[in-house]
């Protein structure tokens, strides 16, 4: 039997597409990427069993004609595991959507901290830093129109210098984090 080209090409294509999707910020795409990678891996394991053969049932086929049953068993287990974990990831995505109305991966806490430390406040406050993951949390209790239009003190020009002084030498995890630590205790 000649080796088939189709399977390696399919596996490679699935891996490439999966890796590409996995690098996206949108969690749904990450999930799709994970599914593609999982399928690629399953096909890889399946193709590890060697050439195709008849069903491995004693009495149905001679042992020489049988396909290798072990990779099939392994793949079956792997599919179940992938399925379960995908369901969990989907639940997490849904939860993330409920919480922050976004399903993208937010800017990392450590990045924020490093940005806070630098004196260049302008960099730390670029729109990417308050990316949507940080924005509206949960279904709002009050609509935007109920809010006073101005949140901060009027001296807007000095806000950044003030921040720099406030946070000199400190690395606060409060900055820009949603919800968790804003409430007075």
């Amino acid at each position: 039997m000649t080796p088939t080209v189709v399977l390696p090409v399919v596996i490679g294509g699935l891996y490439a597409a999966g890796a590409y999707l996995l690098l996206d910020r949108s969690l749904t795409r990450v999930l799709l990427g994970f599914l593609l990678l999982g399928n690629a891996t399953n096909v890889l394991v399946l193709s590890a069993g060697g050439p195709a053969g008849l069903a491995p049932i004693v009495g149905y086929a001679e042992p020489e004609e049988m396909g290798d049953p072990l990779p099939q068993a392994l793949v079956l287990t792997a599919i179940v595991i992938t399925f379960g974990v995908s369901a969990f990831v989907l639940a997490v995505i849904h939860r993330s959507w409920r919480l922050v109305r976004q399903e993208v991966i937010a800017v990392d806490e450590e990045d924020r901290r490093v940005a806070d430390r630098s004196k260049a406040r302008a960099d730390a406050l670029d729109p990417d830093d308050i990316d949507p993951g940080d924005l509206p949390v949960e279904d709002s209790v009050l609509g935007a129109e109920d809010r006073p239009p101005d949140l901060g003190p009027p001296t807007g020009s000095d806000v950044e210098g003030r921040l720099a002084r406030d946070h000199a030498g400190s690395a606060s995890d409060d900055i820009g984090l949603p919800a968790a630590r804003r409430r007075r205790r």
Binding site: L125, D150, L151, P153, L163, D174, R182
Partner: peptide
């Protein structure tokens, strides 16, 4: 902590202005 928290709000406010 209260100070920091306020500053966090200020940060948001400053950005909102920009």
């Amino acid at each position: 902590r209260a100070g920091r928290r306020g500053a966090g709000v200020l940060a948001r406010a400053g950005v909102a202005r920009r």
